[in-house]
Design a protein around this nucleic acid. Structure first.
Lengths: 119, 119
DNA sequence: TTGACATGAAACCAAAAGGTTTCTTATGAT
DNA sequence: ATCATAAGAAACCTTTTGGTTTCATGTCAA
């Protein structure tokens, strides 16, 4: 997995379902690796590597407490995703506009299907 | 690449930079494969396969016009991403609250650094 | 100080991902 | 009819990914 060589970005980091589940768990609570990995059907080491990917992307932060390492989510990098997504906002607004136009036409010539107004 | 076997989801689809660039291009304009692939430093076939992944995720739509196939973005699946992201909204709001608290404390005992208020 | 727990590092592996080249099949233009 | 163009399908190759098991190191408890 994640040969933790270089940096991973947010897009890659959240691409994996396991990692999304990890984020979800670590959003509320800080947790130690063993505890975390208890919730996954894979080895502790595998979970550890996923955590590393998330860490590379800046999505989690680790803290050593005695002999354990506790992880917690850091939401900051999600802002990049948000900005990316924001760009496309207008496109589905356009689709809504098209839908609205369709509905209005439908009210006018009541009952008959408006041809070619692909929504 | 993308052995176009099963469905790909949005998260996977946008994980790759090339595919994000594709989306960006196809958001405005419908384009034919050859034209599209002219903008990438890889073979037409490779681009074609990326398009397939996007298509699997529902992020692009294809239309045959004569001997060419034109692709255009469909923003709908991005709503899933938006909802996913939405869930984490409150977490960085929390961070902002913490920042605000920090700034206010800083105004009080003006000049001295507020220890341990990690933002 | 000895033993048990917590975790990362290493070495390894199979499958998926990203890419290439070659072949086929439609469709258009002459 | 014939030739060129557009694009997906197939077969193939290399690197990355997700996972495993084993080993090493640090810390806590008796």
């Amino acid at each position: 997995m994640a040969a933790p060589s270089e940096k991973h970005d947010v897009f890659q980091a959240i691409a994996d379902p396991t990692r999304r589940k990890l984020l979800h768990m670590l959003a509320e609570e800080e947790m130690a690796v063993t505890v975390i990995s208890g919730h996954f059907p894979m080895s502790r080491t595998a979970v550890s590597k996923h955590l590393r990917v998330l860490s590379d992307a800046g999505l989690v932060r680790e803290r050593k407490v005695g002999r354990e390492t506790r992880y917690r989510m850091d939401p900051d990098p999600l802002l990049e995703l948000k900005r990316w997504l924001n760009y496309y906002e207008r496109f589905w607004e356009n689709k809504l506009t098209a839908l609205k136009r369709f509905v209005e036409n439908d009210e006018d010539d009541n009952g008959r299907a408006a041809e070619d107004t692909k929504i």
